[in-house]
């Protein structure tokens, strides 16, 4: 699908990304040697798995040019629901399936409200998210659920390793590979992108744009469920505030990745979430209080997106023009 020139440009951006990751790692490593330890890297991988799944779901929504602000609420409600089912003694696999189904239903409600009935995406998902946050309290009134957690096997998702890598990381890689294949190698992927680029032209091309918008919300909610499942596995309890910390990294990862890679894609989100997770964990390790680190990472996100945006490049050009009003080589261009 690409010419070699395009590949070059793409791989240059990719190389830049790798360089950026190495630089961030080197800086943190220099400031805090523990950052590069096995334990810390393992932690980054685990956190990246949870953050990355949420970011992947969001990637679909951003590709169809919408927003989903219900991630935290969906995560909270589904976390408590899965926790309640574990406590009720359901086998783990059925808990996961039930969680995914619940997520699909919630995502479907947002998606249909937005695509079919034309409700504004931001308002709708804030509302759905808030409802989710409220519903998270119906099981225990806000108390945490931990019964059966250690016998259910859910903690294996956090602890078990396969060839030296945590299973959660394998899960992440597998689902990203699947999403990459769908979005960049199938007609479904083309239809997703076409829906976002120009819904009218896509409709005139026979693409069921509404269906793809709704589907994006369903996939986003289901990915969010998987993300919060990993958080439950790590902490060994279900609490109503689980998932509150999923939204910011997800947005930061998707948009920083898109800014650096020049467009929203699965690969961009993967790189973006890696960078964001390294920053979050690095700051945490250095003792920066959590209430600052979100702010710092968000600031980095803004700077990153700005630095790679066309608008910023135009401003830089204008600044250059202010200092050197004319190109030294052009002759007689000024009066």
């Amino acid at each position: 699908m690409r010419t070699w020139k395009d590949r070059m440009r793409h791989s240059t951006r990719g190389l830049g990304f790798v360089a950026l990751v190495l630089i961030v790692a080197a800086i943190f490593g220099a400031l805090e040697p523990r950052f590069l330890s096995y334990v810390s890297l393992n932690g980054i991988a685990r956190h990246m798995a949870a953050n990355g799944l949420a970011a992947l779901g969001l990637t679909f929504v951003v590709i169809v040019r919408k927003f989903d602000l219900s991630i935290a609420g969906v995560a909270a409600f589904c976390a408590m629901s899965m926790g309640a089912l574990i406590a009720a003694g359901w086998p783990l696999w059925s808990v996961i399936l039930a969680g995914l189904a619940l997520g699909a239903v919630i995502g479907g409600i947002s998606g249909i409200a937005i695509s079919r009935f034309g409700l504004p995406d931001i308002v709708t998902t804030i509302a759905v998210g808030s409802i989710g946050t409220g519903l998270a309290f119906i099981y225990t009134g806000g108390r945490s659920i931990f019964q059966n957690f250690f016998t259910s096997g859910i903690t294996d998702l956090n602890d078990a390793k396969l060839m030296g890598l945590g299973v959660s990381m394998w899960l992440l890689v597998a689902i990203y590979a699947l999403a990459w294949f769908v979005l960049s190698r199938t007609r479904t992927g083309l239809a997703f992108y076409a829906t976002g680029e120009n819904p009218m032209a896509a409709h005139f091309s026979g693409i069921a744009t509404r269906r793809f918008v709704a589907l994006a919300y369903v996939l986003c909610a289901m990915c969010t469920v998987l993300a919060v499942l990993l958080i439950l596995a790590e902490s060994g309890t279900a609490e109503t505030n689980k998932g509150a910390n999923l939204m910011m990294p997800a947005y930061a990862g998707v948009f920083l990745g898109a800014a650096i890679m020049g467009g929203t894609s699965v690969i961009a989100s993967f790189g973006g979430i890696l960078l964001i997770t390294m920053l979050l964990d690095g700051f945490a390790l250095m003792g920066l209080p959590y209430y600052y680190s979100d702010g710092v990472v968000s600031l980095i996100l803004l700077i990153g997106v700005l630095a790679f945006s066309d608008g910023a490049r135009g401003t830089l050009e204008a600044l250059r023009f202010l200092f050197w009003p004319q190109k030294p080589t052009a002759k007689g261009s000024d009066a």
Binding site: R185, T186, R187, L190, Y193, A194, N198, A202, F204
Partner: peptide, 28 residues
């Protein structure tokens, strides 16, 4: 109504016949 302006021909041309682009299957 016709084009995704920010996308190239490779993206725009097959848009109305994705089935053909995938040779009747799923993968392109």
């Amino acid at each position: 109504e016709g084009l995704a302006l920010s996308r190239h021909s490779l993206f725009n041309v097959p848009m109305a016949n994705l089935r053909r682009a995938a040779g009747g299957r799923w993968g392109l």
